[in-house]
Computed example of a mutant assay.
Amino acid sequence: MNGNADLQYLQKRIQELEEKIEQLRLSRRVLMNLIEKIEKDKSTFVTRLEKENRKLHKDNYRYAQSLLKQNRRIVELQNRLEDILTEM
């Protein structure tokens, strides 16, 4: 009888372990899906930040060029004004 009880115990234990393995496989699939989603979201976010960074650099360059142009114009007008005042 002891052998039969041991066999039933071992069969039950095998079934429990197989169920745990299946649960672990399911958990692994869920985790892998989550990791894939996080990686995709991260990639999308990084792409968006890179695009925004390029736009900001371009805008900054345009602004610097505009300031430089305005400064040149101011210097030009100051020189004209000085020329006019010295001619008087």
Rank of each mutant, 00 (worst) to 15 (best):
E50A: 00
E50L: 02
E50N: 12
E50M: 07
E50K: 14
E50R: 14
K51G: 02
K51D: 11
E52A: 09
E52T: 01
E52S: 03
E52H: 00
E52G: 01
E52Y: 02
E52W: 03
N53W: 09
N53P: 01
N53D: 13
R54Q: 14
R54P: 05
R54T: 09
R54Y: 10
R54G: 02
K55P: 01
K55G: 01
L56C: 01
L56K: 02
H57W: 04
H57K: 13
K58L: 00
K58F: 03
K58I: 05
K58C: 00
K58W: 00
D59A: 11
D59M: 08
D59N: 11
D59L: 10
N60K: 11
N60Y: 09
N60I: 14
N60L: 12
Y61E: 11
Y61Q: 15
R62E: 09
R62P: 02
R62N: 07
R62H: 11
Y63P: 01
Y63C: 12
Y63G: 00
Y63L: 15
Y63E: 04
Y63M: 11
Y63R: 14
Y63H: 07
A64Y: 06
A64P: 01
Q65F: 01
S66R: 15
S66C: 12
S66V: 07
S66T: 04
L67I: 14
L67A: 04
L67N: 09
L67G: 13
L67C: 15
K69T: 06
K69D: 09
K69F: 10
Q70I: 08
Q70L: 06
N71D: 05
N71C: 01
N71R: 12
N71K: 08
N71T: 05
R72H: 13
R72A: 06
R73T: 10
R73W: 03
R73E: 11
R73G: 04
R73I: 10
R73L: 08
R73N: 12
I74A: 05
I74V: 07
I74Q: 05
V75G: 01
V75F: 08
V75A: 04
V75M: 02
E76Q: 09
E76D: 15
E76C: 04
E76V: 05
E76A: 13
L77A: 04
L77K: 04
L77I: 07
Q78I: 08
Q78R: 08
Q78K: 14
Q78F: 02
Q78H: 06
Q78T: 06
Q78V: 04
N79M: 04
N79C: 06
N79I: 06
N79E: 11
N79R: 15
R80V: 09
R80G: 00
R80P: 00
